[in-house]
Design a protein around this nucleic acid. Structure first.
Length: 226
DNA sequence: AAAGTCCCCAACCGCTGCATT
DNA sequence: TAATGCAGCGGTTGGGGACTT
């Protein structure tokens, strides 16, 4: 039995927010706060919006001190390091970047940072990017077997996990060309404490990020500079 | 100038975890 | 303890502007 929808899709407004709606929501929250009830909020304000939509709009756009665009190399660096250690936990990554939202970080990663590392277009995803092909061949094209055993050998790695391994390898190469293989850091049984409820198939050891802090990533590489 | 393609990003969808009853 | 409902989260979509042909 599925759960009931949070709002009536036939009566709520969807799509882009108008300036009037933004003003109504912003004014109300600045005066009264969210009152810990997003579902009731639009009714109190008189907005024909879903509570979840109001929450998202406030958190990602209307909240004070929100920054948009113009990520600095330092922010890039932070995102790379945290992605290696905790993967796509965008809300946690965003808390380390003042003024940034999880949605912003996620979009920035998907449109810019990932592209910088993998060198492929989004529409090539799943087909194997030129960069990923290079990586495959550089590892003898038999990466999957090695990874399977590193993963316990009892289940295939998801596409996102494989992609993360590729990204990790790229980052490791930038930081420490002669260093340990990322596969040696692959410890599926050691979950990052903050994400013990993470249902992803695997997790990298957080020491990768700690290592990154003592040995900062090469900003030239990470910012895509020649 | 028009048509086609790319791709950014705001917003939506659906799942999970937690609190409450 | 089980059922329910909400907040929060990550993945995905699609509108529309930018760019290319």
């Amino acid at each position: 039995m599925g759960r009931a929808p949070c709002c009536d899709k036939a009566t709520v407004k969807r799509g882009p927010w108008s300036p009037e709606e933004d003003t109504m929501l912003k004014t109300y929250i600045e005066e009264h706060g969210t009152e810990n009830n997003w579902i009731a909020l639009p009714h109190k304000i008189g907005l024909k919006r879903c509570g979840k939509s109001c929450r998202l709009r406030w958190l990602n756009y209307l909240r004070p001190n929100i920054k948009h665009g113009d990520f600095t190399p330092e922010e890039d660096n932070t995102i790379y390091k945290l992605y290696i250690s905790i993967a796509s936990r965008w809300s946690i990554i965003a808390t380390r970047l003042p003024g940034r939202t999880d949605n912003d970080v996620k979009n920035y990663w998907n449109t810019e940072l990932k592209k910088r590392l993998l060198g492929g277009r989004r529409k090539d995803h799943g087909q194997g990017t030129p960069a990923s092909n290079e990586l495959d061949s550089a590892n003898g094209g038999d990466q999957s077997n090695e990874l399977d055993s590193a993963n316990g050998g009892d289940q295939p790695l998801s596409a996102s996990t494989m992609e993360r391994i590729q990204l990790c390898m790229q980052l490791q190469e930038m930081q420490n060309p002669l260093g340990v293989s990322p596969l040696q850091l692959w410890q599926p049984n050691r979950q990052v404490a903050a994400h013990s409820n993470n249902n992803s198939s695997s997790s990298f050891n957080v020491t990768v990020a700690e290592q990154g802090q003592s040995s900062p990533l090469n900003d030239q590489h990470l910012s895509g500079q020649p």
